[in-house]
Computed example of a mutant assay.
Amino acid sequence: MIVRVRGRALPDGEYVDLYADGDRWTTDPVPGAELVAEGWLLPGLVDSHTHPGAEAPGDPMDEEILRADLHRHVDAGVTMIRSPGLPGEPPEWFGADPELPRAVHAGPWIAQHGQFFDGWGRRATHAELPVLAAAQALRTGWAKIIADWSVGDEAVPPDVMTAVVEAVHAVGGRVAVHSQHAAGGDAAVAAGVDSVEHGMWLDAGHLPDMAARGTALTPTLSVFQSSLAAARERENSPRKRWFVGGAEAHPALVVAAAEAGVTILAGTDSRPHGGISAEIRALAGTGLRPHDALAAGSWAAREYLGLPGLVPGAPADAVVYAEDPRTDLTQLEHPVAVILRGARVR
């Protein structure tokens, strides 16, 4: 079937009539095309921080679980994912299966010795980090560094992080950095990484520099909010104070980042997969305009990852809703149709 969709296309709300010519949108009528949906059109949702493929931290990559996780993303309207860290090198069909989301990934995480989940990622000395990161980025375009981990751990030093960024950028790649402590955020921003993942306890004074350099923030807000109530009930400890204090301050950081001009990306981080609508609603709950929260999970994220929106020549992805989802973000859970690579997959 040759797919045709029409309606008001976000972000501008202009009326469009689009035909899928293979995996590209065109406004030129394509013989035999069938109108499959009409309404409000998004260029396809994006989950910019997701780790599919394993049931629990430390478990090896499981292809059956990976497929199931990715199908949940599609059911939620996600047509593109970025996975800054995977349980292992993914199979060849990852990102290429016509029924599953497009994907970019950073391969397994890269961490300092003694940090991160046992069984996952690669451990490296400071001298080895730039070499490992550059080799990974050369293969897949991205490398993911764990800048900091548990309370009391030493973060990756700024000069080492700078060497990582220089090595990765030299091969044309990009660097994503896990940071949930102030020192890790300091090192990441000073080095000019491409995205800060989580960013809990990030010094708001860094935000103008991030905006100027094009460093994105993926706050994974909903996963912190879902754990906050239980964390408040735990016995007092340094870890509790770290998590509760950081999670409580995180919404204000997101708002300040957006006001400073930092690109905000919507990412869900943890299981269960397919929760992008909850993350977009969480972003809106901080005080972001629904338009901007939706951008973080759609057109702005696609632009950051190099994909244009609903214009001729763009990849033929779209999610169609009966009404403007900006007026009621719960509509994200009820798409009329999901179009992926020019075919209706839901």
Rank of each mutant, 00 (worst) to 15 (best):
G119E: 10
L86G: 01
A106V: 05
A96R: 15
P101L: 00
F94C: 01
T79Y: 04
H113V: 09
L86V: 03
L86K: 02
S83E: 08
F117N: 11
P84F: 04
F117Q: 12
R122N: 01
A76Y: 02
P108L: 10
G121W: 01
Q115S: 14
E99S: 13
G95R: 05
L100K: 01
H113C: 00
R82W: 05
P90I: 03
I81C: 06
E92H: 10
D97M: 12
W93A: 11
A111I: 00
A76F: 02
R102Y: 14
A76T: 06
P108H: 11
H113A: 06
I81W: 00
T79R: 07
M80P: 02
I110K: 13
G119Y: 06
A96T: 15
P87C: 06
G107S: 11
W93T: 09
R82N: 10
A96P: 06
P108S: 12
E99K: 12
E99H: 13
G77K: 05
W120S: 07
D97K: 09
F117C: 08
W93N: 09
D118E: 13
P101C: 02
G114R: 09
I81Y: 01
P101G: 02
P91K: 10
I110L: 15
A76Q: 07
R102V: 09
I81A: 03
E89Y: 15
P98G: 10
F94D: 00
W93Y: 10
R82Q: 11
L86A: 02
Q115M: 15
P91A: 08
Q115Y: 08
G95N: 08
A103R: 03
R82L: 15
P108W: 08
H105D: 03
G107M: 07
A106N: 07
T79N: 10
G95W: 02
R123W: 03
L100W: 00
G95T: 08
A76V: 04
L100H: 00
G114M: 04
V78T: 15
F116T: 13
A106W: 02
P108K: 12
G95L: 07
P90N: 06
V104R: 13
D118H: 11
W93S: 10
V104S: 07
R102A: 14
F94H: 01
L86M: 15
H113Y: 12
F94Y: 14
G107V: 06
E99I: 05
P108T: 12
G88R: 07
G119N: 11
P91W: 04
P91S: 11
R82H: 14
F94A: 00
F117S: 11
R122T: 06
D118Y: 06
D118K: 13
P87I: 05
A76H: 05
M80A: 08
R123Y: 01
P87W: 02
G88P: 03
H105K: 07
D118P: 00
E89R: 13
G88H: 05
E92K: 08
P91M: 09
P98M: 14
I110Q: 13
W109T: 15
R122D: 01
F116E: 10
P87K: 05
A76E: 06
W93P: 05
E92M: 02
V78F: 02
W109L: 15
A76M: 06
P101W: 00
P90C: 04
G121L: 03
R123G: 00
P90R: 05
F116M: 14
P108A: 11
I110C: 04
S83Y: 03
P84W: 04
F116G: 03
G119P: 00
